[in-house]
């Protein structure tokens, strides 16, 4: 059931980006701030060693405790957060680091300050930079991701999804609101679960959730990165565009 899935994804016990970064990388160094406005703790951007090389990790933080959740704004990334991501992406392109983004987030920050400081432009810039990276990028859905806020971090060569994760156009609650009085589950009408998106061709791999999730994820990332790293920058950029175009415009 979607409801149970959401509860699980949003629970404090859910596998967090911070846990994955700690488990996967050594020598991790986190960037701080967007360079002029401030630092958004809702997203961690930093680099560390993975597969005997430096990789850039982007992880959205929902927080486990109530204090953390408040500090991280429940994982709603602000323009300063996206701009920190963009700083990281610039370095990844400069130093040829692969990029891994870890996604479990509500929509991007929706408040007066976020609008005033250019949420639209910050998200668009992240979509652009992710799309044009000359290095491989892989998105991992640890939980839910929705709307432009998630798309920006998922404009990648590969999309991996944990078995219970979700990726949708808007929050399931928002979509439910236009559905009105239907008995069937939302997922019966719109593909958003990991198996559905795998079938659609958007997700490339679904990772079974059990006590070995992190190890499975590590193996999956290793396999995918090993392949992608043999590709030229041009091929990496071209594959991203082709992947999404094939989905939205099959006959173009």
């Amino acid at each position: 059931m979607l409801k149970d899935q959401l509860k699980q994804i949003r629970s404090s016990k859910r596998l967090s980006a911070a846990t994955v970064i700690t488990a996967l990388t050594t020598d991790f160094f986190a960037l701080h701030g967007d360079g002029y406005q401030g630092d958004d703790p809702a997203v961690t951007v930093g680099f560390g060693r993975f597969m005997r090389q430096t990789v850039l990790m982007i992880g959205v933080n929902r927080g486990a405790t109530i204090q953390q959740r408040l500090a991280y704004h429940f994982g709603a990334v602000s323009p300063a957060g996206y701009r920190k991501v963009n700083r990281g992406l610039k370095q990844a392109a400069k130093f040829h680091w692969p990029v891994i983004s870890l996604i479990n987030m509500p929509g991007a920050a929706a408040d007066v300050a976020a609008e005033r400081t250019g949420q639209s432009q910050a998200i668009a810039a992240t979509i652009r930079q992710m799309g044009q990276l000359p290095v491989p990028n892989i998105a991992v859905f640890l939980g839910e991701g929705q709307s432009g806020g998630a798309l920006a971090l998922a404009n990648c060569n590969r999309i991996l999804m944990l078995g219970n994760s979700l990726y949708s156009v808007a929050s399931p609650e928002a979509v439910q609101a236009i559905l009105k009085n239907r008995r069937q589950e939302l997922t019966a009408y719109l593909p958003m679960t990991a198996p559905q998106l795998l079938k659609l061709g958007l997700a490339d791999q679904v990772i079974t959730e059990d006590q070995h999730t992190v190890q499975r994820l590590q193996r999956a990332l290793t396999t995918q990165l090993t392949e992608l790293q043999t590709w030229s920058p041009a091929k990496l950029k071209q594959q991203r565009q082709a992947k999404y175009l094939a989905l939205v415009a099959p006959s173009d």
Binding site: A124, I127, G148, S168, V169, V175, M192, A249
Partner: peptide, 19 residues
Amino acid sequence: GARMQEGILSLLQMNTVLA
């Protein structure tokens, strides 16, 4: 914005049009 009735495929217009 994105048309919800076409779900994730509406969302993917953002990156494809921007590219």
